[in-house]
Amino acid sequence: MTLALARALKGPSVYDRVLAVNMFGTKTVLLLAVVAFFYGRPDFLDLALAYALINFVGILAVLEFFQSQRNDDEEQAKEQEE
């Protein structure tokens, strides 16, 4: 998790950072599942699943935002060339 956090802070591109944040979220879900197993608390698995869904939807939203921002920048560059 530390390496994923370091990659998220230092990643050379936006997509590397998003991938690192996604990996951090996945490791968090796995950690919640292991804690649920060791403590015998199956309700933690519900939290892990909810966190996994939030992580997935959040990553898709961030990627869509950066994709639309990139498309807008490309359109502006085309307009300036004309």
Rank of each mutant, 00 (worst) to 15 (best):
Met1Asp: 05
Met1Arg: 03
Met1Trp: 04
Thr2Asp: 13
Thr2Gln: 13
Leu3Pro: 08
Leu3Lys: 15
Leu3Ile: 12
Leu5Asp: 03
Leu5His: 07
Leu5Pro: 06
Ala6Val: 09
Arg7Glu: 07
Arg7Gln: 04
Ala8Phe: 12
Ala8Tyr: 05
Leu9Pro: 01
Lys10Arg: 15
Lys10Trp: 14
Lys10Asn: 14
Lys10Met: 13
Gly11His: 02
Gly11Val: 08
Gly11Asp: 00
Gly11Glu: 02
Gly11Asn: 10
Gly11Leu: 06
Gly11Ala: 14
Pro12Glu: 14
Val14Asp: 01
Tyr15Thr: 11
Asp16Pro: 02
Asp16Cys: 04
Asp16Ser: 13
Asp16Trp: 10
Arg17Asn: 03
Val18Arg: 03
Val18Lys: 07
Leu19Asn: 04
Ala20Ile: 03
Ala20Tyr: 03
Val21Ser: 01
Val21Cys: 07
Asn22Tyr: 06
Asn22Asp: 05
Phe24Glu: 00
Phe24Gly: 00
Phe24Asp: 04
Phe24Gln: 01
Gly25Thr: 00
Gly25Asn: 01
Lys27His: 09
Lys27Asp: 10
Lys27Arg: 06
Thr28Ala: 06
Thr28Ile: 05
Thr28Asp: 02
Val29Arg: 05
Leu30Gly: 09
Leu30Ile: 13
Leu31Gly: 10
Leu32Pro: 01
Ala33Trp: 02
Ala33Asp: 05
Val34Ser: 11
Val34Asn: 07
Val34Arg: 14
Val35Thr: 08
Ala36Val: 05
Phe37Cys: 12
Phe37Val: 08
Phe37Arg: 13
Phe38Met: 12
Phe38Arg: 08
Phe38Glu: 08
Tyr39Val: 10
Tyr39Lys: 10
Gly40Phe: 05
Gly40Ile: 05
Arg41Cys: 06
Pro42Lys: 04
Asp43Lys: 04
Phe44Pro: 03
Phe44Lys: 02
Phe44Cys: 01
Leu45Cys: 01
Leu45Val: 11
Leu47Met: 14
Leu47Cys: 06
Leu47Ser: 10
Leu49Gly: 05
Leu49Met: 14
Leu49Glu: 04
Leu49Gln: 04
Ala50Ile: 13
Tyr51Phe: 11
Tyr51Cys: 00
Tyr51Ile: 01
Ala52Tyr: 03
Leu53Glu: 09
Leu53Lys: 12
Ile54Val: 15
Ile54Gly: 14
Phe56Cys: 09
Val57Leu: 15
Gly58Tyr: 04
Gly58Lys: 03
Gly58Thr: 03
Ile59Met: 08
Ile59Phe: 05
Ile59Gly: 04
Leu60Tyr: 09
Leu60Asn: 05
Leu60Cys: 13
Leu60Gln: 11
Leu60Trp: 11
Val62Glu: 02
Glu64Trp: 13
Glu64Val: 14
Phe65Lys: 01
Phe65Ala: 07
Phe66Trp: 07
Phe66Ile: 02
Gln67Tyr: 11
Ser68Leu: 14
Ser68Ile: 09
Ser68Tyr: 09
Gln69Met: 12
Gln69Glu: 08
Arg70Lys: 13
Arg70Thr: 08
Arg70Ser: 09
Arg70Phe: 02
Asn71Ala: 12
Asp72Met: 09
Asp72Glu: 12
Glu74Leu: 11
Glu74Gly: 00
Glu75Thr: 06
Ala77Cys: 01
Ala77Asp: 07
Ala77Tyr: 11
Lys78Gln: 09
Lys78Leu: 13
Gln80Cys: 00
Gln80Ala: 12
Glu81Trp: 08
Glu82Asn: 13
